[in-house]
Amino acid sequence: MPILRRLLRIFGLATLGELGACEEKLHGVRQRLEKTAARMDEAIAASERFQKAHRDDAHRHKAALAEREAEYARRTADAKEALARASRRIAVLEEDVRTRDAQLEADVRQQASLEEQVAAAARDLAEARGSLAAIEVKLDILQGAANVLDARVRRGAGV
């Protein structure tokens, strides 16, 4: 047999068995090819779905980004406006503080002046009281002396 097969091969011929085996193999290959083609189609379809999903996501993200950019811009504008308002308010308050500070300083100066006046008045009062006391003492002395002299005169006169 092997010699026969060798001879057939030399003439480019095959046995019927070999042909059947080849046809079987070919059939198997065709089946695998068809399966592979089907899988390829599935893969292509999946890829297309995947790409579509990505494109959809990208569109959504882009839309969200645009929306956020708009929100950011709006908020930035709000913040700038608030900053401007705050700056104006701060300026007003600073002016108010300066005014009050000046008023306070004036009040302090006035209070110091008043305290000095009170202290001076207290000193004057103390001096006046002292002078009054001295006058009182002198009047006592004069009154006492008058009483004593009166008594002496009366004694001398035998009254």
């Binding site: 001096e127 002292g130 002078s131 001295a134 003492v137 002198k138 002395i141 004069l142 002396a145 004593v148 002299l149």
Partner: peptide
């Protein structure tokens, strides 16, 4: 002297 007002002094 019976009266010596100059002797009355403030402290």
């Amino acid at each position: 002297p019976l009266v010596d007002l100059a002797g009355v002094v403030l402290p």
